[in-house]
């Protein structure tokens, strides 16, 4: 009996080691899923009607290039996450949407070179909602953009 117990313990110990090594050696794919879930959970906290409307405009106008996760396309379309272009000066951000943007920009040491068209045909309210969504999504946590702020920048361009 004692021997049996000891063997059982051994087996459990061995299985533990097997699990440990499998975990250590598996490929990293599984980690990506856990990141996705974290992002979704973070977003779930702030799903107000305005947020959902902003998300709708984002999916319609922005997602094709900036991707569902806001991370952009390497070398081409810049990420909207952890960058002063999104989190910093709101007037500059509104200006990008109204005027478009061309030429290389550098974000966190990476260069992005695709040009962006103008979205001046969108209404002030739509731009405010979509930018508020972007500033509060993908792990971003910055204040909203108001319709008045968009109108002010639009007036300064004309």
């Amino acid at each position: 009996m004692k021997l049996f117990l000891r063997n059982t313990r051994c087996r459990i110990l061995c299985m533990g080691f097997v699990m440990f090594f499998i975990a250590g050696c598996r490929n990293e794919n599984s980690k990506i899923h856990s990141t996705d879930i974290t992002v979704e959970k973070k977003n779930a906290k702030i799903e107000t009607p305005e947020y959902l409307e902003g998300k709708k405009y984002f999916n319609q106008y922005c997602m094709a290039c900036h991707m569902q996760d806001g991370m952009g396309v390497p070398g081409m379309n810049p990420p909207l996450v952890k960058t002063s272009w999104v989190l910093g000066d709101k007037a500059r951000l509104i200006g990008v949407v109204l005027n478009g943007l061309s030429g290389d920009i550098e974000i966190n040491g990476e260069l992005y070179s695709n040009s962006m068209g103008s979205f001046a045909t969108l209404e002030d309210k739509e731009i405010a909602l979509v930018l508020s969504y972007v500033r509060q999504s993908f792990g971003n946590d910055a204040g909203p953009v108001t319709q008045e702020e968009v109108a002010k920048v639009r007036a300064s361009i004309k």
């Binding site: 990293e28 794919n29 990506i32 991707m67 569902q68 996760d69 991370m71 952009g72 396309v73 390497p74």
Partner: peptide, 16 residues
């Protein structure tokens, strides 16, 4: 190529 299956984000793949 790693991290290219079932991804919607273009920045996910480890190698391209």
């Amino acid at each position: 190529f790693p991290h290219t299956e079932h991804v919607t984000g273009s920045s996910r793949p480890k190698y391209r």
